[in-house]
Structure formats: C-alpha cells, structure tokens
Design a protein around this nucleic acid. Structure first.
Lengths: 292, 292
DNA sequence: CCATCTGATACCTTCAGAGTATTGGTTAAG
DNA sequence: CTTAACCAATACTCTGAAGGTATCAGATGG
C-alpha cells in the first residue's frame, strides 16, 4: 500500500464510477480497475460492493475513506512544510541572549521577528556571554545577542547598539552628589564585577578603563549575574560599573553616575557563518535594517 | 512523493549511513542513494548534508523526519483499522429499539456488546416499531429490538423475550381488587392503546384478545408513546393493556393486574439478512446465546 | 602515500503498472 | 422479449521506474 493507492481509492469512493474516477486520475479504466482490485487484495478487505451497473462503499470502505482523507492531508502538509522549513518560513530558532540585552534590544528583535516569521518557534535562552560563545560554537544556538566578541571568524556579527558603562553606588555614598565620575574617584573603592570567565568583553572593558587612568582596581567580589552585582552594591559591599541600559531599573537606594571617557561596549547579534538553519537569515536581515 | 519514499528517508535519517540504511530496506546502496537524491529533487529541499564520510540531517530534514513519523504511523493505523472494521471489531452500529424494550433486554444487550466490541460506536435510536421497520428497510439502522414483525423475509430475527400484557388502571378503579382480569371485565371500559400505525404487532395482539373473548373494544385514545398511555390512565381517562416489563415503573396511584389467557408478544432482535455491516454479527451472536 | 571506507555514477535488467482491445453482465427502452 | 447502451472485468502488450552489478572518486587514518 502506498499513498498513490489511497488516491485511487479516494477517487473511486468519491465518484463511485470506475470510468470517471480513472479519468480524474488521467488514466484509462482497465488499469484503474486492476489497481482497485489489488488494493482490496493487499488489504484483505472488500472496500466496494459492485456489479456492472452500481458501485457502493462497504462500511469498511466508508471508514477507510475518512482515514485516507486525514492521512493524505497530513502527507501533503508534511511535503509542503518541509519546503517552508527549508525557506526559513517555518521551524525553530534557538536564540541566546545575555541578561544585559534582555531589557533593551532583545524584546524589539524578538517582536519584529515573530511578526514576519510567525511559524518559527523561538527558543529563547538567557545565558552568560561565555556560555553563548560556546553554544554558538557547538551549534546549540542558532543566533545570539551578546557583547561583540574578539576575533571570531566563524561568526557573522551585526552591530545592534552601543552601551556606555555607568557607575552605580548607594545613595549614601560619598560620590553620590558628583555629576561625573573618573577613574581617580575609584582608586580606593571596593569594586564588584563579573569575572572574565563569564563576560570577558565586559570585564576587559572595565579593566582597560582603570588601566587607562593608571589605576589598579580592587575587585572584591565577582558574581556571575548582573542582578547579583546590583544586589551587592545595594547591600553596601562595594560599587560597580554596569551598562547604562540596566540603570533604569535601579531602586531609590541606588544612584548611577556617568563616567568620564566612559568605556563603550558593542552589543551585537551574531550567528555562525555556516549556520544551516534558514530561519536565521531573516533575523540577521531585521538586525541589519535596525542598525542602519 | 510516496510513503515508500518516506520510508527511504526515515531509514537514512535514523542510520545516517547509506549502506546500512539500504540494508535495512533489503536493497543495495546505489539505487538507495539515487532514491534519496530523487526525493530531495522532487521536494526541492536538501534533507541531508553529506560527503563521502559523514551524513547529517539539515534542519528541514529534522523537521521532515518528525512529520514522516506521524504520517507513517497514521498511514499504518488506517490500513490496520480498515481490517478491524471489516472484521466487525471496529466501526459503527446503528441500533434501534422501541421504548418497551428500553428497560428490559436493551440495556443488557448493549452492555454485553460494548464489552466485547469496545471499538464499535453504538448509535442508539429509540423509535416506534413502525419507524424501526422502515429504517431497517432503507438501511438507516443496522439492527433493532422490536416486537416480532409479521412476514419479513429480508430480516433475520432472534427471539429475546416474551412479554405478557397486563391491564393497568387507577387504584380507585372497580377492578382494582380483582385477582385477575378477563375480556368480559373490559367490555364497557374506555380503552387506551397505541394505534396500528405505531405498533401494529402490539395493537393487533390487543385487538385479537378482545376478538377471542367476543368483545368489541372501545378505543377512546390512541397516543403514540407508552409513556403517554400510562399518564392518561393515571388521569382517569381509561384503562390500558401494556407489556408487563413496563408495570414495574408504575407509581402508587396505578395498579396492574394479570390477564386471563394473557396475550403474549415476542421481543426480537432483527437485522437485515443482507446487512453489510460486519459489526452486526457479534450482536446477533450475543442475542442467540442469551435466548438459549 | 596507501589502505579503507563510503557515497556517487554508469550501465544493465526486470517487473509493476499503464494502454488497447475485448468480454460479459446489467439496465432500460422499444 | 429483444436490443442497445453502459460499465466493470479480463487478456495481452509495452514502457519506464526502480533495483542490481561494477566502478569511480573523495575523505580519513595510519
């Protein structure tokens, strides 16, 4: 049995006339009759009652007709969908992003993408920049928003936004009244920052800032999450430099101040150049348009 | 495209090795490779990334694999089910019964049938005996429980039970204290009975009873439903002869009395001899066993 | 550089399935 | 009752899709 046989059966079940059914299938009646007989023989079931004048469905044939219709519909859908998946109109996109981007560029990007690709299931994964790099490399992610990595020839990157760093401190901190902060203001501060193992680009931007000011920074705590950094600053355990987009969500006990010659990080969308997932390209296109 | 092609695709998708996949399908590698290439060509989609050393699924291929599995499963189920329907193990049975049988033989019969044929959907239709005859004739019913009809060569009938008629009257009726009723007790009674057009067998049994006693009965009301007959007797509009199985559901305001030489009706299960529905035979078998 | 593994190609072969001609059974009109 | 028309089944032929064999060509590891 095969789907072709189902089409033969359905044609006869719907016309109840061998000649017309054969014509529908662009063939002649004798081979068509043979095929119907073969189908009944292979299934071991009589599907039609017939004499040389009338053709009717048996109860088994009626039931089979219903089943054939659903099977054929699903079969056709599968053949149609595989084309849609190949064209990127349907499928799955595993999309990574770092927490720093969750409140700025990611919602816009996800929103616009799911508008033009409603049949692509977005699997969102919030991870650290280092995890994102690894997952992109081994193919566990199709695309991700992260800080611009260093040299990475296997990735295509599109610039999305620039993020200046700002200093955050408790409202009762000595510097809380200053208009602007410089490296020298920070030389005796207890600093909180993510470790290189979590966000190398961010960490090295902070380190460079102090190096440029001739300061050797005093990192006292190195939590993995930005969230935790803000909590620890609020507890009075130190101060931190964080991306400006995160400053809007601080409560009143904390203040953020701009930095003189503030270090700037590039937030980029990146995907493996060799990505086999056709759903990626539309995402890159959106990002490319937005960045213009 | 055809289900065979799906099987080819699935074999390769699951082994990721042309030679082994071909062996699974009991064929050699070269024609198998050709078939895979043809599938990709017909779909217009690359399903596998491959070189002479490694075979992997593309995202479109992964998606197609899922779809193929469900399509093939449904396809196989359809071919399996059509056999079940043909054998009577699955399908639909349109089962008619008259109200007189609803409280006696029908529940038992339906119960036992659905135990041994759980996959046959029973469509129950309560109708009058005349409607049942018509529906059996035109094929709107597969089987029915009714009073034994007269000569009906197109029906196979199996005896299920005998029903004696009893007389019902209000508790304040003059005959309410008698132990047994004869035709002569009824000669001046206002009688209520279903018309011949609704239940010919029942009506003629009643008529014969009076004829045998030399009485010409006085039918004053002829409602279609037994239910209505009982209601009307309770209202004091007359008396009636009804099957004994209905007497158990009378309330206290009514009494039923046995009849001398009570007329007896045969309750039978009947189905068209030429019934094409294979689900019928098991029902007939059950009925045949019970009647022994 | 060679042995080996593996998918692709070239060429041959076979049988499933389509076509043509015809038969046989059923129905309806004359 | 006969006949014409219709329709499914059968007999036979033929074509091409699909499988087999032999071989090639690219990749990998020693």
């Amino acid at each position: 049995m095969d789907t072709r046989h189902m089409h033969y059966f359905m044609a006869l079940a719907e016309t109840l006339h061998f000649g017309r059914a054969a014509k529908l299938l662009h063939m002649t009646q004798p081979p068509f009759s043979r095929q119907i007989a073969l189908i009944e023989q292979k299934l071991g079931v009589k599907l039609f009652e017939r004499n040389s004048r009338h053709v009717t469905l048996t109860p088994a044939g009626k039931h089979f007709l219903d089943d054939c219709r659903t099977v054929i519909a699903q079969f056709d859908a599968a053949c149609r969908d595989v084309r849609l998946v190949a064209s990127g109109m349907k499928g799955e996109l595993r999309f990574g992003f770092m927490m720093h981007a969750a409140h700025s560029v990611v919602p816009r990007l996800v929103q616009r993408y799911s508008e033009i690709r409603p049949d692509v299931r977005l699997v969102l994964e919030e991870r650290t920049p280092t995890e994102i790099d690894d997952m992109l490399m081994v193919g566990k992610l199709d695309a991700a928003v992260t800080f611009a990595p260093g040299y990475s020839p296997h990735l295509r990157t599109i610039h999305l936004a620039k993020e200046k760093l700002r200093m955050i401190m408790r409202a009762d901190h000595a510097c809380a009244n200053k208009r602007m902060i410089g490296p020298d203001d920070l030389c005796h501060e207890r600093l909180i920052a993510t470790p290189t193992s979590v966000a190398p680009t961010l960490r090295s931007a902070i380190a460079s800032y102090f190096a440029a000011g001739g300061i050797s920074p005093n990192f006292v705590l190195e939590p993995r999450l930005q969230h935790t950094i803000i909590k620890l600053v609020a507890e009075g355990l130190g101060v931190a430099l964080i991306p400006e987009s995160l400053c809007s969500m601080l409560d009143e006990s904390l203040v953020s101040k701009p930095l003189r010659t503030a270090p700037t990080l590039d937030v980029v969308l990146c995907a493996p150049i060799t990505s086999a997932n056709p759903a990626v390209s539309a995402l890159m296109d959106i990002a490319a348009q937005s960045s213009c």
